[in-house]
Amino acid sequence: MNVLKSAGCALLMAFSASGALAQETVTPPSPVMSASSQVGGSLYVTYVAAWIDVVTRAIPGLTISQEPGGSSQNIILVSTGETDFGITASSQAYLGYNGLGWAEEQYRNFVGLHPAFPTYMTIITLADSGIETVEDLAGKDLAVGVPGGGSDVISRELTGYLGIEPARFVNASWEDTGGLLRDGLADAILYIAGHPAGFMQELEVNRELRFLQMSDDQISGFLDAFPYYAPVSLAADTYQGLSTDLQTVGQMNFMIGSSDLPDDFVVAILDAVYANTDRLAQGHPNFAETRLENVRGIPTPIHPAAVAYYESRGVQMRIAPPPPQ
């Protein structure tokens, strides 16, 4: 490991002293490469398209094609060499790396490169509901979206971990969920996805909302129990009722690549991405979350050159613990 770190630091001195120099002199491992995203209409497609534009502008002579895929499928595609890059989510990556859940085997020939954009778990209630803490959800009706969706799943994981028993989990479409809270048919809503959410913004037009905050110990303990989630922070003023940053859990979507990508090439990609986050954000406001510090949301091994890149900038990384035996 010390050899890798020393090599990585040497590379940073050679290639990152000037981001422009790194991008001009690096030679891609192949002039034509590929990156898998998803099938039409998703943020994955939009992000990878913007990412390809940024990277190929910065590295002369490189062409990257965008291929269809999916969060778990991209793990397979990159690990088997069918594509060079992909985008995935922290939960799918953790499960794939460890051969759990959807993965019928361990997929190990992929590495994290950099964060893309997170999803955030929020728990909201009406400000006059009398519910002030997460513990107050005991005996309450908790709306969690469609059956089997991400919010439904994490709501049961979270309340089980905390030992909280809601009176019932209320399943409904997100179009209807805001009305359930407004009309007193649900006491609170747990929602994990991108923000701002339209149904929450609509609620705030006429009602004041309260955002429930988990404690630091609750967050860290939950992440230990369910390491495929990630620590994330939802910015203050995302909603009218959110006056300070909300520390919570979520999933980090992130870019992955083949384990054998050359070190100098990886550094050039990182230089290009972090120098052009404003260009990425033109595709969607959430893409502005491609920030150095969000690398802590990647739960699987990161390319050695990227590790050195982040360490040299004082950025903390978090490799999730292996699953219990």
Rank of each mutant, 00 (worst) to 15 (best):
L62N: 01
M33E: 07
I269L: 12
V39L: 14
G86T: 01
D136Y: 12
S6K: 06
T88V: 03
G130D: 15
S215C: 03
T122N: 12
N276E: 13
S129Q: 13
G8I: 03
D53A: 15
E135L: 10
P231H: 10
G112F: 02
M200V: 01
E157S: 14
S71D: 02
D216F: 10
L4Y: 02
E135G: 15
G241M: 05
L12V: 12
A127W: 14
Y161E: 14
K140H: 07
S34W: 01
F211T: 13
T80R: 13
A10M: 13
P299L: 08
L142H: 10
L180C: 14
N286F: 05
F254A: 06
Q282P: 07
F226V: 04
Y120L: 02
A17V: 14
D187N: 11
T238P: 04
T300F: 06
F85A: 11
V39M: 08
W102R: 03
G8S: 09
A167P: 06
V26N: 04
D216S: 09
V295D: 03
E202H: 13
E104D: 10
L100Y: 04
L4Q: 09
S312V: 01
V307Q: 05
I75G: 00
G198F: 14
Q23C: 15
T80C: 05
A230N: 07
S16P: 06
S312D: 03
P304Y: 01
I123D: 09
P196D: 06
G19I: 08
Q218I: 10
L280I: 09
E157G: 02
F85L: 14
A167H: 13
N74I: 08
T63M: 10
